[in-house]
Design a protein around this nucleic acid. Structure first.
Lengths: 102, 102
DNA sequence: GGACTTCTTCCAATATTATGGAAGAATGCT
DNA sequence: AGCATTCTTCCATAATATTGGAAGAAGTCC
């Protein structure tokens, strides 16, 4: 119960960093097969280790899914998770049909 | 351009804390007229100063709107802002109608 | 004006996060 | 086996966030 708040707060915190948000959007816009860490790196222009930390954070929060092909590590968005997060934000909101209804 | 990422990352970071997420949800579920700081405080059970810091953070990120009535400070959700945030997360996603389409 | 309520700001301590060089792991190639 | 590529983990440092007591501001009521 209370763990749901913590779970989603963790996801929001994972997205609550300019670099990580940029990473997610790059991946989301990049298509279904995901993006290799190297591609992402050349997009965000950061040292490999720093990027890796951010990717791990997103992975731990279950905002990303990863897969390996040879020496390449591909990252794709976890859309179900993202959907669950946005749903949670609006849950039980505006039941009486106020102006804020989604 | 890049400021949009920073703006929304800041919003996500504001929500990326269990207490603040709980606060937003309490307010969102509480109805249109908003909730007084005191009501919120008795819900989250935190010292007044700590709560005030969190409310300020949410306010600065434009996730809340505040209004004063006498000595009471009411806080309400900024639904347009919340909508803008969730839209941003899904923007330009899954253009080719993949399984993740919203 | 004085007492009371409601909430915010000041301040300092503690905890968590972010960063990146260097070293390590896993894979592939010849 | 040796070497290159791709990315992760180890480690230490710097920066930022969180926390809450004490003091302050702003309103109400007698």
């Amino acid at each position: 119960m209370t763990s749901k708040v913590n779970y989603h707060a963790d996801q929001l915190a994972a997205l609550g960093h300019p670099v990580r948000l940029a990473i997610l959007r790059f991946i989301v816009q990049g298509g279904e097969h995901g993006s290799a860490a190297g591609e992402i790196q050349s997009h965000v222009e950061l040292p490999a280790s720093t990027l890796s930390h951010h990717l791990k954070r997103l992975l731990d929060a279950e905002m990303l899914i990863s897969r390996q092909e040879g020496t390449f590590h591909f990252y794709a968005a976890d859309y179900e998770s993202l959907r669950g997060l946005t749903n949670y934000l609006w849950q039980d909101c505006c039941k009486r049909g106020g102006k804020g209804s989604p």
